[in-house]
Design a protein around this nucleic acid. Structure first.
Length: 271
DNA sequence: AACGGCACCTGGTCGC
DNA sequence: TGCGACCAGGTGCCGT
């Protein structure tokens, strides 16, 4: 899935086409997502004007006149602007037909994504309540990571991927940031120094920003709001490169499982 | 409270 | 060529 850069790319890609339009028609072809799409969602959305689109964590938040649309892309979701002439494919779950003729179409083979509508002036939802800070915000710093990690025995990679600690960092970017910071992903979070957390926070910010500039990472099927893939995959230093030479020291990269997720690192450069 | 593990899905790839 | 095993960008929830 989409990690933060891919969701941000989607957000920026669809925004110019949907903000200011109204939702003329909602077509739910397959309501089976992580949670079934509510039966009344189409009726509640029809006729509303789209005021803005933003990203929070890996969620897209589409603000309308009378409430908020909350969408998550799961592992294989993509949201793009298309037209009515574009043939519908398998796993195209829903369409919003917009004034002006554009269609916002959601595609998700594995169905881990979601779509909710929250009525009212306040964006409040259980899925949003315990999220940590945005990694690209000023609240996310080395000091912050250091303070929250004291006495924690969990591997630092899992700590970094915990959305209660910081949002948006998934498996790809956690691997990359830890490599860049020279930290062994297996190291207990509580045994990483302040100095190294400062390095880690800086690399997380740098790598995410760079990936956003490249339109995200496309491994298989991710496409941005314009339907085009991202180009950050060619910049990856360790993700997907187990048993290949480290770009720094040329030793072969190692692979381990941490929290059921494949973890790749250099045992020479990371400790 | 913190942590590990499972579950939810489809589809692509790999080895036999 | 076919088939089963395994893996994949996430995350809520369960049990310990």
């Amino acid at each position: 899935m989409p990690e933060l850069p891919e969701v941000e790319t989607t957000c920026r890609g669809i925004a110019p086409h949907i903000v200011g339009t109204s939702i003329d028609h909602v077509l739910i072809r397959d309501a089976r997502l992580r949670w079934p799409i509510a039966d009344d969602l189409a009726a509640r959305l029809t006729g509303q004007r789209i005021v803005s689109v933003e990203r929070r964590a890996k969620y897209l938040i589409i603000s309308c006149d009378d409430g908020f649309i909350l969408a998550h892309l799961g592992m294989t979701g993509s949201l793009r602007i298309t037209s009515l002439e574009d043939p519908v494919k398998a796993h195209d779950h829903w369409d919003f037909m917009l004034s002006g003729g554009a269609v916002l179409r959601y595609h998700d083979p594995r169905r881990f994504g979601s779509l909710h509508y929250i009525a009212g002036p306040q964006l409040q939802h259980p899925l949003l309540t315990s999220l940590g800070p945005e990694p690209l915000s000023e609240a996310f710093t080395g000091v912050y990571l250091y303070q929250l990690s004291r006495r924690r025995k969990q591997a630092v990679k899992l700590f970094l991927m915990d959305a209660k600690i910081v949002v948006g960092v998934g498996n790809i970017y956690a691997n990359e940031a830890l490599f860049a910071a020279g930290i062994d992903p297996r190291r207990a979070a509580g045994r990483v120094s302040l100095r190294r957390y400062e390095l880690l926070a800086a690399h997380v910010k740098r790598i995410l920003a760079s990936a956003i500039e490249r339109g995200g990472t496309t491994l298989r099927d991710f496409v941005g709001g314009d339907g085009k893939p991202g180009y950050f995959a060619q910049e990856l230093s360790v993700y997907g490169r187990a048993n290949q030479p480290c770009i720094g020291c040329h030793a072969l990269l190692k692979e381990v499982r941490l929290g059921q997720r494949t973890t790749v690192y250099c045992s020479t450069c990371q400790n």
